[in-house]
Design a protein around this nucleic acid. Sequence first.
DNA 1: GTTGAAAAAACAGAGGA
DNA 2: TCCTCTGTTTTTTCAAC
Lengths: 144, 144
Amino acid sequence: MSDPLDDIDKKILLLLQHNARMPISQISKEISMSQPSVKERIIKLEEKNIIAEYGTALNLRELNRGTTTFILVKTEQCERFVEFCKGAKEVTDLFRISGEYNYLIKVQTATVEELAEFQDALVQLGPSKSHISLKNIFENRIVL
Amino acid sequence: MSDPLDDIDKKILLLLQHNARMPISQISKEISMSQPSVKERIIKLEEKNIIAEYGTALNLRELNRGTTTFILVKTEQCERFVEFCKGAKEVTDLFRISGEYNYLIKVQTATVEELAEFQDALVQLGPSKSHISLKNIFENRIVL
DNA sequence: GTTGAAAAAACAGAGGA
DNA sequence: TCCTCTGTTTTTTCAAC
C-alpha cells in the first residue's frame, strides 16, 4: 500500500475521476499548478498504481440494458458457474462471497422478461435469490 | 433508447472503455479510419448519451480500501439510511431493491475490523446481512 | 466517408530556484 | 518538488473531393 495522498493529488484525482479526458492544461488551471508539475504527479499516480485505468462509462439504458438485478447464487459447480457468467453478456459483475451463498452477480437486462430468461438458464446451476434494483442512488463512488 | 451501434462504433467504444485517454490519432490507426471521422463518431456517441462519462478507476487496495462487502439492509428509516450512506465514505454503491430487504450497499473498508465498526454504526437503522467478497472475478464489464 | 493544410492547443524536456 | 521557457507533437477545424 502507498503513502496517503496529499491534497493536490486528491484534487487532481477528483477532476480526473469524472472526466478522464480533461487536458492537463485545464487541470493545471483549476488547481493553480503548472502543467509540468501536474503531469509529473499524474505519472507518479499511474506508476504507483493508484490510478488503475482510464475508463469510459456507457449509459446502460441507452444500450438497452437498463434493468439492474443482483443475484445471490448457491452452487456446487463453481467452475461451470464462473464460465457460464463469463459467457453471459448480461453479467457485468461477478464476486465470490462468504456466507450462505457462493457468488453475487450483477446482471443488466433490457427488461424483467429478459431477466426471467436469464434466471431460467441459471436455475440448473443451483438455487439463487434475486433482488431487482428499483433505483440506483449512487455507484462506484470513491470519496478521497 | 438509441439505435443499435454499428461495428465501427463498437470498436471505438471497446478501445475507449479501458483507455479513455487514448489519442484520436491512435484510435484512428487501430480501426483504420480517418481522424475526422473518428472524432465525429465520438462526438455523436457523447451527444446521444451512449458515452455517459470518461472516468478514472482507482486502485482500492492502494487506497487502503481493499476489503469489499455487500450488505443487504432492511430499514424503516429510509431517508435517514440514505443520508447515513451518503455520509459514509466506506459506501461506494447504494441501490434501492425489491424483496425482503430494502437496500443493497457495497462497502469498501481497509480491513474486516473496520467493517465491523461500520456494521456497529449500521445496526441501529435496521437488520442487515453481510457478504464479504472473497474474490472479485470481474466488475463493471459491458460486452457490446 | 476521404485527404490535406493551417491554426490552435497540448505536451515533453531542459535548466534552475 | 515546483517553476519558466522553448521546441515539438497532437488536435482541431477548415476546405475540397
